[in-house]
Amino acid sequence: MISTWTIPATGGADTAEEMLLAFDRGRTQRVLVCPAWFDEANKLRRFTVELMRRLDAAGIDSLLPDLPGCNESTVPLRDQTLAGWSEAMAAAARSLGATHVLAIRAGGLVAPSGLPGWHYAAQSGPKLLRGMIRARTIAAREAGIAETSEGLMAEGRTRGLVLGGWAIGAAMFAALESAEPALAPGQSDIAQSQVGGPGLWLRAEPDEDAGQADRLAALIVQSLAESGA
């Protein structure tokens, strides 16, 4: 269930090995899961894997690669870019033989456009940054440090910024300011209202919800059946 995948060397960079959580039984339908980011990744990790267990039970393979710079990755997070993450997810899709993609929250910003699939509760770059910047200004205020959102945005753009413990480089920061999730042909949105209940990324602490995992898995299974894929 735990394995690795390798990002091919590009532009003189060495190949990098990244970790992968997979329910891989060599079946015909293979869903690449582009995970949620940063704090939301932690809050949604268990939900994501619970969903994958349900897809497994429904006869569907699923593959959850780490984003470079996150979790067990050996490359520094601050060096990562939006384009780099998109390329990494495309490389994962190719090397793992994915047939579909499920993007979760900001994962939609880097979902391979060549695969059909779903964007669950897609999150835009500006909203992601706004929430993280706000958390930092609130924490700063508590500590008696004067920081403004405007000042932090300017700093992020030019020098990068540590938000909520995540080191976001200047290139990633600048790209996120205008990054919107886009549905490629064959991809569709799954809104939280279709899954029902409050989104688990909202929770102050990680949680799980078996009913939500059941319903999201059912929506995906149904969509696959309808597309005849």
Binding site: R136, I138, E205
Partner: peptide, 27 residues
């Protein structure tokens, strides 16, 4: 459990659900 990250999430969700904009100085 309501730390700065959770408060930020709460305020951002308030903006979305209530259709308001919350500035730094409001907080």
């Amino acid at each position: 459990e309501l730390d700065s990250m959770a408060v930020a999430g709460l305020l951002t969700e308030m903006e979305d659900r209530l259709g308001i904009v919350i500035e730094d100085d409001d907080v």
